[in-house]
Amino acid sequence: MSLIDHIANLGRNAIALVAGFGRAGLMLWGAIARVPNLAKGTPLLIRQLYVVGVQSMVIILVSGLFIGMVLALQGYNILVGFGTEDSLGPMVALSLLRELGPVVTALLFAGRAGSALTAEIGLMKSTEQLSSLEMMAVDPLRQIIAPRFWAGVISLPLLALMFTAVGIYGGHLVGVEWKGIDSGSFWSILQSSVEWRQDIVNCLIKSTVFAVVVTWIALYRGYQVIPNPEGISKATTQTVVQSSLAVLALDFLLTAMMFGS
């Protein structure tokens, strides 16, 4: 292949990438820009909150508990060497609030709910359900995409909060109940080092950003699927890979902005 071909290839890929972003943006805009019809939209949203939120709850709570416990165990072993095992509380709480809560929840969410959204919408497209809505004069962006988007954006921050809260209790379980750190000093040192704006608000901001990105990628991948079984399985994989990478990259960016200076 000649050099010109390589340059043309690069150009074609770049154009396709920009066009993809444009299409994804238009899809989201079409879904959420219009004033929602509350009477019709609320039942759809509730149903999606069930699928996206409630059904992800068990995996989030169980993972949160275990991650908090593991964090406490490893942290205890390191801190006890310095005689500062009382600082286990802030270590567990801050790692969960600042990083692990939003990030791990978003990754689990991409695997649990994101892939399911892609597969569901891909299947709807390949069985012509989306075309069928169009022909019934119902906008599929409003009927299908919008409620799923909002359900994702509402659910993920709530799940991240649950993950973090359960994780801190998991840390308490290991640190206090098992390793015998004094419960009073665990909580008081934890409380004096966790700050409302710096830690909790930032945790919420992070998980909201991740929610938008993960849900958006999942919906777009489903909406743009090549309507056959191979296309759906490929799109599902792409959803998990792309949204995980996006979450990790954005996490670095947000962390640099929030805690960098």
Binding site: A165, Q191, W196
Partner: peptide, 23 residues
């Protein structure tokens, strides 16, 4: 179930705000 889900999210938030950040 969706109502319970939203409530547990709120509960987690309140726990973090008042019990962890001690606002």
């Amino acid at each position: 179930l969706v109502g319970l889900f939203l409530l547990s999210g709120l509960a987690a938030f309140l726990v973090l705000v008042f019990n962890v950040a001690n606002v």
